[in-house]
Measured scan of single mutants.
Amino acid sequence: MSGNGNAAATAEENSPKMRVIRVGTRKSQLARIQTDSVVATLKASYPGLQFEIIAMSTTGDKILDTALSKIGEKSLFTKELEHALEKNEVDLVVHSLKDLPTVLPPGFTIGAICKRENPHDAVVFHPKFVGKTLETLPEKSVVGTSSLRRAAQLQRKFPHLEFRSIRGNLNTRLRKLDEQQEFSAIILATAGLQRMGWHNRVGQILHPEECMYAVGQGALGVEVRAKDQDILDLVGVLHDPETLLRCIAERAFLRHLEGGCSVPVAVHTAMKDGQLYLTGGVWSLDGSDSIQETMQATIHVPAQHEDGPEDDPQLVGITARNIPRGPQLAAQNLGISLANLLLSKGAKNILDVARQLNDAH
């Protein structure tokens, strides 16, 4: 009898209710805020589980004197976190989706994509230029951005401005803007500013005609071990179906173009009346040469937790077992079709030249 009692006690200790789920994140304040929001949602869904947040620095956090596009290494903000995932030191990792490459290392998958916040870019102005827009900034004003995508589009749109690289986390960039006289304004992701509670610093939100956004911008991705079915089931509740389908289309477009950090590629997606609209573009580094096109596809946005595919093969690095396969494939095909259209119009040449120029500098 006593033996059975011990077995029952052991089973209770090993039951999922007692389990601590370890969540990996970057150390920056924004990353911690984003991770806290994901953990809060998981806690609400699984009140019996405990969650421990483990923060670590990544290569991208450490190399702050070089433009991201020049470092010449993929997975700048993800490699150390993936290493911890691989060694079973954490069970899942919360990322900004735009930091996750469209091809993940073997053994990993994006197990959830959370509801997207505003994906557009924002302009934050130096205190002396508050009330201005990019259009009304004085001639030769210097605007800071760490992104080739932003610089290429904005140089084309605002030729009277000069664009220079600015690195560091959000706090560091804002301090550089406010305390030094080098920059009249800087460009940042609206979602990051909003998550930090800095709505009052948003001086201008850039519309798609001015600057399309990065693939996955404004959404959070939760990376897990691809074979860890328990954790895949656990994080599945975080999937937002519309965000998922938009981001599958965007990531398929980028992957098929073979774009990345070192080339200016941008997108804009919208879901309306059962249609998914995808606009994508590529630019030369100075913005003088560009190709942009829009395509659409009829896609039914499923309700969360309709029964999805059981075999769960990944699409552009994403596993969404609780979302039907048909809409996911339709979104992926839309991204591939748009990429093929741009490639047929000469996108590869623009991107190759951009890559060579970026590598040469």
Score class of each variant (00 low, 15 high):
G168W: 01
I299E: 11
V142P: 06
Q304G: 06
R173S: 01
E86T: 10
E89L: 10
K87W: 12
L81R: 01
G218T: 01
A219R: 03
E258P: 06
F129T: 10
L148F: 14
K115Q: 11
V267D: 01
H83M: 12
L92I: 12
I54D: 06
D307C: 10
N358R: 15
V20K: 14
L49Q: 13
G218C: 01
G168H: 03
P101F: 06
A191T: 09
F163E: 08
Q229A: 07
A270M: 15
T190R: 07
Y46L: 08
P264A: 04
K157C: 11
L276F: 04
G236L: 05
A360L: 07
N349W: 15
N340H: 01
A40W: 10
R251M: 10
P106M: 06
D99I: 01
E117Y: 11
Q194M: 15
D91R: 04
D307E: 07
N118G: 04
Q180C: 15
K348D: 12
H239Y: 06
L254P: 06
E242N: 01
A266E: 04
A31W: 01
S57F: 13
H95E: 03
L341T: 14
L220W: 05
N118P: 11
V130I: 13
G192D: 04
T298P: 05
A84E: 07
A55V: 12
R246Y: 06
T145S: 11
T133N: 14
R325V: 03
M196G: 09
I248C: 01
L134Q: 01
Q50R: 11
R251D: 01
L338D: 01
P138G: 08
E306T: 03
K132R: 11
L315E: 01
K272T: 11
K157R: 11
V124I: 11
D286L: 08
G346L: 09
G236Y: 01
I231M: 13
T102C: 04
S146D: 05
G72Y: 10
L329Y: 05
I299V: 12
Q356Y: 05
D359H: 13
P302Y: 08
I205R: 07
A347D: 01
P159K: 10
W283G: 13
R32E: 07
E82N: 10
P127G: 07
F163D: 04
P105A: 11
L92V: 07
P106V: 14
N171F: 04
A219G: 08
E179P: 06
L351A: 01
L100I: 14
L341I: 01
Q29E: 07
G111L: 01
L85C: 11
D178S: 10
G236V: 04
I113M: 01
P138F: 07
D240V: 12
I350P: 01
A266K: 08
T294S: 13
S290M: 15
Q180V: 09
Y277N: 10
D240L: 01
Q204A: 04
G216D: 01
S344N: 14
L193S: 08
